[in-house]
Write a protein that binds this DNA or RNA. Structure first.
Length: 829
RNA sequence: GCGAAAGUGGCGGAACUGGCAGACGCGCUGGACUUAGGAUCCAGUAGGUUCACUCCUAUAGGGGUUCGAUUCCCCUCUUUCGCACCA
């Protein structure tokens, strides 16, 4: 009678595989449902976070199968990127070898979990049959003008001759060699995601996304409306465009602020090699850790450039300062500083004794320069602004902008915080950018027929001198596809976020040799109906994927506007209050749990612990609770098998039910009702499982079936026999076993959703709670739908109520049907 | 600093549109049983008060709306997450 989970799980995993249940069929006439969990980086082992993520996906998959959908749940590997490259370096191997080894091992663990995954559609981003199409997409984007090259400053280690990601910079030094990290300006490839900024703000086409994620993306995109206005460099025709959201303050400009990265500043630096102050300030600021620089809120510094700019509106001449508080990447990279009405400009002006000019007065016009300790940033009444004086500052914004436009000094414009997506990585282990640099023809795309540009294997990974691709002459040197002369390949590889921004579409047609995917198949499967993954991808991955989807839509490859109709951001599994990590030594190995207690126990534990979007604290004791629950279920059905089988064949309409069995019948139908609501609608699996546990408790409360009459036996049998179906999404192996043991010839995924009958949910009596001034003073058991007047009388006669009303005068009685009688009373005078 | 979410027993959590706070599970206490098993079964388990019935206090803290608030509103505190001078 022991719950032999190992045998049971192996048996059903085999059966499911043989029957190819998880292999979804394209163009089936059943409605489709596409469940996708974010694919893992192949680290070699599943960790508990994966188990939790995929347990949710698998529950949804099985629920939807029971519901009759043609369900696709694919899986693959996000296998390019730095972790794989670094792993190979430290293990003195090649990332292709270690990655493929890891995949083999992870596949074993996936199989041991018994997930319904369509392995016929497996992808791995580092394989040529996948990254081929990433290159193809890159090219199509290039042709559409969505790809360009731009110089930008990167963290650069002189010793390693390589670009470093922000997280590889530790205290301004290279994480690997410890040398100083400098900011080097280099050409980088960019995707023009900002073209889609406005559309990405629109979430009206998703069905259900967490509000939190949408807010984060909106903030990330950061739309702001204002004006771009051209200031002029004094004694020059050189224009310096600025962006402002406050055109109403433009007469209050007393200086201009530029960052050291500004092209003008770069010119001056080149012109004045002997200007020590300027040179050292710029060098220092530019090489400061980017995070540090942008967080040092109090430290506003700058040097006067010795140059002046002319305010086009009033011809005023203002000093140009080079500062550390202006960002090159936002707006136009130049700020018209209005110290009176901007706190940062105010701080700066105070520090360097720059004039401050009030151009907006508060309501009682009491603002005085000498009293100001901070900038006045509120709206008010315009002053010192020529013919705009005395207008309301907010109302005047538009008018000033129109005037500026009329005069040709600038334009109304919208700026986004969102920046174009830099996809260049000076790394070996990534998708090669399919471009060729020809001395004659410039930058030329690799022709389609030459795709994919294969990543060469024969590199020395682990060399610290620059991108390993530079060390492969056979690969590097090519003929220009246009003129045939000697040329060089682009050695940058793509950010791995590029790989993951379209993989969900590849699953629709994973083996297509001619296209990224067949649009007809994509049309059948997309969008992903339910996407599941960590909240940490709220801005980057999920935004990039939406962007690429919109591009693919514009190409006519996919229909609709959004890749993911519903999004579930699942919580992390914590231990000792912290994220599990090897370095903390607080990991739990899911394989160990599966070996000792089975996949079903692990799944039930993870799903029962909390609602899916919340973090779960790992608890060994509670895991045992899940195991005991499954054991009890197993014993109940195996131990009463004869009675259940007999009962299932009994109609027993004639005989009377004891109150106990009547309750059991109610429990059965009530449980199904709750289970359906929690599993299918609310997606709150913890309470769905709790409902089954409660029902199990009702079943096991019947200690013997010997004295049951036929009707009672039928009720008992149906109460027990429903459990496998209810458990199937959460503990599929055991559920399948019990279902078979009960004599069903089919498998559970084709058993349909269990349904309840309304008539058995009706109760013989209704319990009314009686409140006096909000406090419970008694209860009444009456027939349902008893007349309110009668109830009121009955309630006022209840002993406790009478006592509570002593010295009180009843003011009002409220009757909530089948719930409560609420009496409001006031003390008697 | 800005933005978002959250705060309920010893613990994880439940209470769905305001209507019996603490479902379910863990842990704990007592008991039964034994094929000594990560057993199983029964009873109990927010705190206080009482022999008991009862009653009182409790959903971070304070106020408000309401017959009635874990739920709605305002303020404060705490925690977590995201962003970080956005002109």
């Amino acid at each position: 009678m022991d719950y032999q989970f190992t045998e049971i799980e192996k048996k059903w995993q085999q059966t499911w595989q043989e029957r190819r249940i998880a292999n979804a069929r394209d163009f089936s006439d059943r409605p489709k449902y596409y469940v996708l969990s974010m694919f893992p980086y192949p680290s070699g082992v599943l960790h508990i976070g994966h188990a939790s993520n995929y347990a949710i996906g698998d529950a949804i998959t099985r629920l939807k199968m029971m519901e009759g959908y043609n369900v696709l749940q694919p899986m693959g590997y996000d296998s390019f990127g730095m972790p794989a490259e670094n792993y190979a370096i430290t293990h003195n191997s090649h990332p292709r070898i270690t990655t493929e080894e890891h995949i083999v091992n992870m596949r074993k663990q996936f199989d041991g979990m018994g997930f319904f995954l369509d392995w016929e559609r497996e992808i791995s981003t580092c394989r040529p049959d996948y990254y081929h199409w990433g290159q193809y997409i890159f090219k199509k984007m290039y042709e559409k003008g969505l790809v360009y090259r731009k110089k930008s400053f990167q963290n650069w280690c002189e010793t390693c001759k390589t670009v470093l990601a922000n997280e590889q910079v530790e205290d301004d030094a290279c994480w690997r060699c410890g040398a100083e990290v400098i900011q080097k300006e280099m050409d980088q490839w960019y995707f023009r995601i900002t073209n889609y900024a406005e559309e990405l703000l629109d979430f009206s086409h998703v069905i259900e996304w967490p509000e939190r994620v949408m807010t984060m993306q909106k903030y990330w995109i950061g739309k702001s409306e204002g004006a771009r206005i051209d200031f002029t460099l004094e004694n020059s025709t050189q224009k310096i465009p600025i962006f402002t959201t406050r055109p109403d303050t433009i007469f209050g400009v007393t200086f201009m602020a530029l960052p050291p990265e500004h092209p003008l500043v770069q010119t001056w630096l080149a012109q004045e090699p002997d200007n020590a102050e300027l040179q050292s300030f710029c060098k220092r600021v530019m090489n400061e850790d980017k995070m540090l620089r942008s967080s040092a809120e109090s430290l506003k510094e700058g040097v006067f450039s010795g140059r002046y700019a002319i305010n086009p509106l009033n011809g005023a001449k203002v000093q140009i300062w080079i500062t550390n508080y202006v960002l090159m990447d936002y707006g136009t990279g130049a700020v018209m500083a209005v110290p009176a009405h901007d706190q940062r400009d105010f701080d700066f002006a105070k520090k360097y004794d720059i004039p401050i000019k009030i151009v907006i007065q508060n309501q009682d016009k009491s603002l005085k320069l000498e009293d100001m300790t901070e900038a006045y940033t509120e709206p008010g009444i315009i002053c010192n602004s020529g013919h705009f004086d005395d207008q309301d500052s907010e109302a005047a914004q538009g008018e000033i902008t129109r005037w500026v436009e009329e005069k040709g000094w600038g334009v109304a414009t919208v700026t986004y915080r969102l920046r174009d997506w830099g996809i260049s990585r000076q790394r070996y282990w990534g998708n090669p950018i399919p471009m060729i640099h020809c001395p004659k023809c410039g930058i030329v795309p690799v022709p389609d027929e030459d795709l994919p540009v294969l990543l060469p294997d024969e590199v020395q990974v682990g060399q610290t001198t620059s991108n390993p691709l530079l060390s492969v002459p056979d690969w590097l040197n090519v003929k220009c596809p246009v003129c045939g002369e000697a040329a060089r390949r682009e050695t940058d590889t793509m950010d791995t976020f590029v790989d993951s921004s379209w993989y969900y579409a590849r699953y629709a047609d994973a083996h297509n040799r001619d296209l990224p995917f067949d649009p007809a198949k994509a049309d059948y499967w997309l969008p992903v109906d339910q996407y599941i993954g960590g909240i940490e991808h709220a801005c980057m991955h999920l935004l990039y994927a939406r962007f690429i989807y919109k591009f693919m839509r514009d190409m006519g490859w996919v229909k609709g506007n959004e890749p993911f109709a519903r999004l579930l951001t699942q919580g992390m599994v914590l231990k000792d209050g912290a994220k599990m990590s090897k370095s903390k030594g607080n990991t739990v190995d899911p394989q160990y749990i599966v070996d000792r207690f089975g996949s079903d126990t692990l799944r039930v534990y993870l799903l029962f612990a909390s609602p899916p979007e919340k973090d779960v604290e790992w608890n060994d004791e509670a895991l045992m609770g899940a195991f005991r629950f499954l054991s009890r279920t197993y014993r109940l059905i195996k131990g009463n098998l004869d009675a259940i089988k007999l009962g299932l064949q009994t109609s027993g309409e004639s005989a009377e039910l004891s109150p106990e069995l009547k309750d059991l019948r109610f429990s059965t139908h009530h449980c199904i009702q709750r289970w359906r609501e929690d599993s299918l609608i609310r997606m709150q699996y913890n309470t769905a499982i709790a409902a089954v546990m409660e029902h199990l408790n009702h079943c096991t409360a019947i200690k013997s079936t010997d004295d049951l009459n036929p009707a009672e036996l039928a009720v008992y049998a149906s109460a027990c026999s429903i459990i496998p179906q209810l458990l199937y999404p959460y503990a599929p192996h055991m559920a399948e076993e019990l279902w078979q043991v009960m004599g069903h010839p089919n498998l559970l995924h084709e058993s349909g959703l269990p349904s309840y009958e309304e008539k058995y949910l009706a109760q013989d009596t209704a319990t009314y709670v009686i409140q006096v001034n909000g406090k419970i003073r008694g209860k009444l058991e009456v027939a349902p739908d008893t007349d309110a007047g009668i109830l009121q009388e009955m309630a006022l006669e209840v002993e406790n109520v009478v006592r509570a009303l002593e010295g009180f005068e009843v003011k009002k009685v409220i009757v909530i049907p089948n719930k409560m009688v609420s009496i409001a009373a006031k003390p008697q005078r």
